[in-house]
Design a protein around this nucleic acid. Structure first.
Lengths: 244, 244
DNA sequence: CGCCCATTTGACAGCTTTCAAATCGCGTGG
DNA sequence: CCACGCGATTTGAAAGCTGTCAAATGGGCG
């Protein structure tokens, strides 16, 4: 089995990073009713414009949020992993402003919006913690805007690879230097605002320079410090209290 | 005088768009202690990395949030106007992950974080409304990521001009077709992830095509529908319930 | 063994940037 | 009222990073 602990536990641990929760807060959160659901790679959890009546926590696997612009191009907006809650905003906002799609085979715990609203009404500290998660989410979005807006291709890719490594480490999934990269080169391109062809060339450059290695879905960062330097990666925006 | 109503009122009205507030909620919010402060154009409210102990509401004028990347380039992340609360995240997160700078002469109402925390603890509905604002903020960030990541220069600028017009209209500042544009071409470039020179050429193109006119700080959108089409502008992401 | 999708390669085009330099707009001071 | 000065805008030419279009190669799965 993928996890030997309650599906919502890693989400709870993430929430506690920013706001202290009491035992009863914790129990209330873990007592949320949920249904486990499997998504195949490529499956959509919901699409831009949908009215969504549930909130999800990722139990295993990876999902991405994205938008499609007028000419059909896709921009990936963020990548999420175990312990991330991806659509708690549905508890408040009417309609989804983006789509969510599984990057790999993914298991999620799905909870009705109504149950979440009741949880938050009864547990202000949990609401505060969830708000904090939202704030971190926004901070990551800001960094991505700067990444695609003002960094060149090599820097963008390096930054992205650092972020994913650090976040997988923080989520207890792996080491920042060796981790599962759930994105194909085409998806990396959609995350970085580049073309697949150019991503391929950038990755080759990083490999040639001895900074990176990659086989199948695994990335090996040979020289973390240099990749972070190349990627202009300063992890403060993750609000993670993880050492740089 | 710039406003004939309490400085926090337009902020309150914004909050009520997403969550219903009781009379006592409203009174509590309006009773927040605050200090009015003037900022000259270009002045920083705070910088990336600062520890900030206050929250601000814009009373008049415009501010931008931005980040500076390794090579010194600036990316503007959002533009804010009257009624926007710009750094309530300081109530929860430790350090600023971006800088805030006045674009024009700006008046702000500044409140200690502590007073905000007490307000939120005593008024869960206000906390929910503030959370909603944060969610909208994140949604706007996502649209901007897509804008700079996947749209060409002309589309980006058109999109930006549509967003600012619609938001100024929603804030009761002007009509979406004729409004104060608080950004120089250089700042437009920093918002769009372009160079000032190219922004200039794009603007000229829009003028030549009879879609746009501009004198001094005022933009006149001659053909709103066409600008929205060019800019791939679908305002759902503003979660504003303003008609397209 | 063969198919399919992801990755890789090559040549070329093009959108955007770069680097100056000129012009404009506007508040200031004489 | 007009000259001055500085920042914002405009223009031109040339370079460059990234995109486009195809086609070849590679690896995994049925």
């Amino acid at each position: 089995m993928t996890q030997s602990f309650p599906p919502l536990l890693s989400f709870l641990q993430k929430l506690e990073r920013h706001v202290a929760l009491s035992a009863s807060n914790r129990d209330a959160l873990l007592a949320l009713p949920y249904k486990l659901r499997q998504l195949n790679a490529g499956a959509h959890l919901f699409r831009e414009g949908d009215h969504v009546a549930s909130c999800c926590v990722i139990v295993s696997g990876f999902v991405s949020r994205h938008k499609i612009v007028a000419d059909g191009a896709r921009q990936i907006l963020s990548v999420h992993m175990r312990g991330d809650g991806v659509d708690f905003q549905n508890a408040i906002l009417e309609r989804a402003d983006h789509s969510i799609q599984a990057l790999t085979r993914t298991e999620i715990a799905e909870t009705p919006v109504k149950a979440v609203q009741e949880l938050l009404a009864a547990n202000p500290a949990v609401a505060a913690a969830l708000w904090a998660e939202t704030l971190v989410d926004a901070s990551v979005h800001r960094e991505w805007t700067a990444n695609v807006g003002r960094r060149d291709a090599r820097t963008r890719i390096a930054h992205l690879l650092c972020e994913l490594g650090l976040r997988e480490e923080a989520a207890g999934l792996s080491d920042r230097r060796t981790y599962q990269l759930p994105l194909t080169q085409e998806q990396l391109a959609d995350a970085a605002g580049l073309t697949p062809v150019h991503v391929n060339r950038v990755l080759q450059g990083l490999r040639t320079d001895g900074i990176l290695a990659r086989d199948r879905g695994t990335v090996k960062i040979v020289d973390w410090d240099q990749l972070a330097r190349i990627g202009d990666f300063r992890p403060a925006y993750l609000h993670n209290s993880v050492p740089a």
